[in-house]
Design a protein around this nucleic acid. Structure first.
Length: 117
DNA sequence: CCCGTGACGACAT
DNA sequence: TATGTCGCCACGG
């Protein structure tokens, strides 16, 4: 009995995270915890981040640059390789100051609310 | 199978 | 407000 595909190669927590992340509208950002909460895995925000780590290899690509931490801090920029992330966000209308999202609560997009599950 | 690590979050001090 | 600690779950070694 061999596994035809690894768990991470198909629908799973990672994939769910990607789906939600791709629902984030331009000019908006969300937090790892929000996604985790939406997935029902509240408290496992780390898993969301972990998924994001591999999101780059996911297809279609995931707008991980729209996902920040609870403080609105661009924790992901460190992994994007520079200011590229902030640049993309500002390109969408999201102001970034000191690696943090300006008016975070304003541009904040909560899947549990916006998607009104 | 056990241990360490990690794009986080909430709480305690 | 800032810093420290614990919890959380998945994955690699």
């Amino acid at each position: 009995m061999r596994l035809y595909r690894k768990p991470m190669d198909d629908i799973n927590f990672f994939e769910k995270v990607y789906q939600v992340a791709r629902l984030i509208p331009p000019g908006r950002v969300t937090s790892y915890g929000a996604i985790a909460n939406y997935l029902g895995t509240k408290g496992s925000a780390r898993m969301v981040g972990w998924a994001m780590q591999a999101c780059e290899k996911a297809k279609p690509p995931v707008p991980a640059h729209r996902v920040v931490n609870r403080q609105g801090l661009l924790t992901a920029k460190f992994h994007f390789g520079g200011e590229r992330m902030a640049q993309m966000l500002e390109n969408e209308g999201v102001k970034v100051v000191d690696d943090k999202v300006k008016d975070f609560k304003t541009v904040y997009w909560d899947p549990s609310v916006e998607l009104a599950l």
